[in-house]
Design a protein around this nucleic acid. Structure first.
Lengths: 203, 203, 203, 203
DNA sequence: GATGAATGAGGGTTCATTCAT
DNA sequence: CATGAATGAACCCTCATTCAT
C-alpha cells in the first residue's frame, strides 16, 4: 500500500518503518522516552500498536535505531564537508558548526539525544556505542590532523580533548533547549570554535 | 536505636531520612531512577515501603533531595577552598580539581547526577534549578575574577565559557563511569585545567 | 468477534462492556463498592484486570454507568406504561408498582442503588444527577397530572410529596433487602400506593 | 488529666473519648467515612493516631458509636416530648418535627447518618440494628396509639407505614443536605406531617 | 495513658507485549 | 502485512493498625 518502488528520487518516501521512527522522534522529544507509550508513538505514526512490533522488537529499539539512523546520516553528510576544510582550526571550526547545526535543525532530535538518551544509554550500550565510536573517530582525526598540521599541541591528551569538545558543545545544545528559542544555536559556533581552538593550540 | 551518642565527629549519624537518601543514591546509581522501585530503595535502606513516605512525599522527591543535599554540601565545602586560590588559572585549576574530586569520591552519585538525573530533570526543574544556579554563579565568578585579574580574555562569552567548562568536565566524568575504573578521574584534572585555561586565556 | 448473528431476540448479547458492567453489578451488590476491587470485578467478568480499563476510565465509571444504564432502561420502559394509566391515583399506583418491580427483579441492582451508591454519590454527583433528574421529572408529572385531574390536592408541595414518595418507597426496598427474601417486594405495592394516594389526595 | 469527676453539671466536659467521637462526626461528615483516615480524625481531635485505638477498637467502631450515641441521645430527649402530645396526628406531627429538628441541628451528623452510614451499614449491622430498633419501636408506638385513638386506619400495615414515614422524612433530609442551605429543614415539618397524617388516617 | 514512627498488605492504574483475526 | 483487543505483571502510594518509648 505504501513503501512501493522508491525509483530514483532520493531518500524520502517514508515507508512505514521510517514513519514510525520519525513519529518516535517527535513523541520522545516531546514527552521523553519514559513518558511516552508505544501507543503514543503508534498514534503519532498513524498505525496500530501492534504494527510497531512488526518493525521493532522492543521499545528500546526505537531509541537505538533513532539514534543510529540520525547519527549515521550526520556522519555521512559531515565527512566530505570536513574534508574540504584545511586541517587544524579551520577544520575544527567546521566540526563545531556541523555539530551545532545538526541539533539546531531538529530540536526534538536534540532533546532525544541530549536528554532522554542518557538514562537509557547504559542499558542500550551495545546498540549505541558502535555508532558513537565512529563519531569519536572523526573527532579524534580532526584533532590528530590538527596536530600533524602543527596547529594543535602535540602533547594533547586526545581523549580528554575530545571529551571537552564533545561535552562542551553538548552542554551548549542543552542550554539552548532549556532556553527554548531565546537564542540561535548556530550563532554559538564561532565563539565555541575560538575557545576550543585556543584550548588545543600549540602554545 | 540509631543516632546515638555521636562521640566527637559530628557529620554523618544517619537518622532514618539520611539512611533512606543514601540508599536511594546507591539504588538509583545502580539501576537508574526509572529502573528502581520504591520497594528497592526501602529494601536497601532496611525499612518498609511505607516508611519512605514518612520522609518523602513522592518518588521524585528522593531524587530532588539527593541532588540538593549533595550539591549544597559540595558548594559549601568548595567556596572557601576556591577563595584560597589566586584568581585566574590557579583558581580555575582548583575548580576543575574540586569538580572532578566531587564525583570521584562517589561513583553512585556521579551516575545519578550525570546520567539518571538528566531525563527526569525537565519534570523536576523547579526542585533542581535553584540549587544548580548557585553553582553556575560560582563558575561565572571564577571566570569573571579571572578576567578582572587580567588572565582571562575580557571578550569571553561567559555563558558559553561556562557551558564548555561544565559540559566538558561532565563528559570526562561520564567517560570515567563508562570506563569503569580503568583510570583515575582525579588524574584528569591537570590536563583539563590546562586546556580550559588556554581556552579562556587572553591571547 | 462475539456479539455474532443474534437470530431474532435482540436484547441481551453481552459484549464485553456489558459483561463487565453486569459483573460489576453483581460484585458491588455483594461486597459493596468500596469492598470490591477492580480485580474482583475482572475475575467475575472473566477478563484480565487491564481489560476493565479498555472500557471504563476509572472505577467510579463502573458505578456511574451501572446506574445510568439501569435507570435509563427503566425510564424508557416505564413511560409508556405510565401513560396508559389514568392520571391520578391509578397512575400513582402504576408508578409504585413499577418502582418496586424494578428492584424486585434484581436484588443486586437494588443493593447497589439503595445502599452502595449513596456514600459514593457525592463524588459522582455530575454523573448521576442528570439521569436522576429525569426520574424526578416523571414523578412530578404524575403528581401534577393528578392535581390537574382533580384527584390530588392542588396545594401540595410537589417537592416534598416527591421526596415522601421516593424516599418512602426506597426505604421499603431497603427493608426488603435486609429481610433477605422473607417477603415479596411486589406485594407491598397496593398498600404503599394506597397510603401515598391518601397522602396526596384532595381532602 | 481530663474526664475527671463530672460532678453535677450535665453532659459536656468532653473527655477524650467524647472529643474523638465529635471529631469523627465532623470529619466523616465532611469527607465521608471512606474518605477520612484515622489520622484525619486524630488531627481534628488533637490527639495522636494511636490514641484513637485506646478508645476504639477499629475504625468502624467510630461510626457505630457515633451512631449509637447520637440516636440514644435523641431517643431519650424525644420520648417525653412525644408523650406530651396527644395520640394520633398531633403526636405524629411532633415526631416529624423532632426527626427533622434532630438533623437540622447538625448537618455533619445528618450527612453521616443519611449518607455515609449507608454503605457501611451492612457490615456494621450488629452494632447498629439494636439501637435503631428502639426508634422503630417508638415510631410503631406512635402509629399504634394513633390507631387506638381512632385517628389512624386500623387496617394499616404498620411496617410499611413506618418505612414510608422513616424513608420519606430521611429523603427530605437528604434533599436538604444537597440543597446546601437553600431552605430551612424545620419548615418542612408541617407539610410532611400533614401528608403523612392523611396517609395513615382512617378514611 | 499517650505518642507517632513504623509497618506492609492492598488497591487503582498503566503499559509493553502478544496474538487471533 | 496490519490490526487493536486483551493480557497481567509491576508500580506508586495510602492507611488501618501496632508497639516501643
Amino acid at each position: 500500500m505504501n513503501e512501493s518502488a522508491a525509483g530514483s528520487v532520493p531518500p524520502v518516501l517514508p515507508g512505514k518503518e521510517e514513519a514510525i521512527l520519525q513519529a518516535a522522534g517527535r513523541v520522545f522529544g516531546r514527552r521523553g522516552y519514559h513518558g511516552s507509550s508505544i501507543a503514543d508513538v503508534a498514534a503519532e505514526a498513524g498505525v496500530a500498536t501492534g504494527t510497531i512490533y512488526l518493525y521493532f522488537r522492543r521499545k528500546e529499539d526505537l531509541l537505538i535505531r533513532l539514534f543510529q539512523r540520525s547519527l549515521q546520516e550526520y556522519l555521512e553528510s559531515s565527512r566530505p564537508l570536513l574534508a574540504q576544510a584545511a586541517a587544524g582550526e579551520e577544520r575544527l571550526t567546521r566540526l563545531v558548526e556541523l555539530h551545532l547545526e545538526f541539533f539546531a535543525r531538529d530540536p526534538d532530535r536534540a532533546r532525544v539525544f541530549q536528554i532522554h538518551l542518557r538514562e537509557v544509554a547504559p542499558v542500550l550500550r551495545d546498540g549505541i556505542t558502535p555508532t558513537l565510536r565512529e563519531y569519536v573517530a572523526i573527532i579524534d582525526e580532526v584533532l590528530r590532523d590538527g596536530q600533524a598540521a602543527g596547529e594543535f599541541d602535540a602533547g594533547l591528551d586526545l581523549r580528554l580533548a575530545r571529551h571537552l569538545l564533545f561535552g562542551g558543545l553538548n552542554e551548549v545544545v542543552v542550554s539552548w533547549l532549556h532556553a527554548d528559542g531565546r537564542f540561535e544555536l548556530r550563532d554559538c559556533a564561532p565563539a565555541c570554535a575560538a575557545m576550543l581552538g585556543r584550548a588545543f593550540r600549540r602554545s
